[in-house]
Write a protein that binds this DNA or RNA. Structure first.
Lengths: 142, 142
DNA sequence: AATATTATCATAATCATTACAAACTAATAA
DNA sequence: TTATTAGTTTGTAATGATTATGATAATATT
């Protein structure tokens, strides 16, 4: 579901964000890139295309997207924040070998225990960690 | 289920950790304190009792406990790690108003998606955020 | 075009965590 | 007991991710 530059721009405008070039590029990157990139990944990759890009801008833009509820912050790891476009609810699996974060379907609402009936739930995160199939098979061939 | 000093000491020895005074105090603190304390909370509270206690020791000891699988790290928030004694699997709810982290029962295994059948799962975390009943009722009375 | 507003940049500041080396304590052996 | 070794704790310095700040550039508004 590759969106055009113009379509991405509209998405930003919908959220009352000015569709600057940098913002569109960062949004596009988040859409295209699998594995839920970190700030460093985003910055390093986009820096090749946009040499003037500053890391501050990446931070600013991501925080802007978070406030606009376009993007979610994943705190699956304690030393590095990852970012996730908000589409539908899903769980996250981080491979401890290759650091890729995979999405998986999960019906989170089924989880909700009775003991939470008096709580106001704003966010739900399901984080799994382990080894992904690709790294598992590599390990076997070593 | 308050454990005595001697019993806590035995727990450490079981895990091949020397039962030093500091380690026992930190373990005891984790057992007694509700809401999953941060390093700062642990340090500040224990510092009153043990004025010579160093924050390094708190970090060292917690990491030791994690390696020994006595304690789990909670990365529910991106700016502060919380710690959780390993007992049985449960979810964590963080109140965004009072910062307390509540446990709740959850049957994670029932919900594991088929798409993860080829993944080796080592850790499972379920993090919810929102407002706890106590803060909700406070808000209503304001 | 002039002015006000917003974006971006570059650097400095912050803050949680880790690394490190010295000081201290406990365990073991002679 | 003393000497030796291993393990623990401390305090400070280093690291590294993130945020704050002030200057500059771009865009929108009048």
């Amino acid at each position: 579901m590759k969106l055009t530059f113009a379509e991405l721009s509209t998405e930003l405008v919908k959220k009352n964000l000015r569709p600057s070039h940098h913002r569109i590029k960062i949004l596009e990157y988040l859409l295209d890139k699998q594995g839920h990139p970190s700030v460093d990944q985003i910055f390093n990759d986009l820096h090749k295309e946009i040499p003037t890009l500053s890391k501050s801008t990446v931070y600013n833009t991501l925080n802007l997207f978070i406030t606009a509820r376009l993007v979610r912050m994943l705190t699956i790891e304690d030393n590095e924040t990852r970012y996730d476009l908000i589409v539908d609810k899903h769980g996250h699996f981080k491979c401890e070998s290759c650091d890729t974060i995979y999405d998986f379907k999960i019906n989170i609402d089924d989880f909700i225990a009775d003991e939470l009936s008096d709580f106001q739930i704003n966010d739900q995160d399901v984080y799994f960690k382990g080894i992904c199939p690709s790294c598992l098979s590599n390990k076997n061939t070593l």
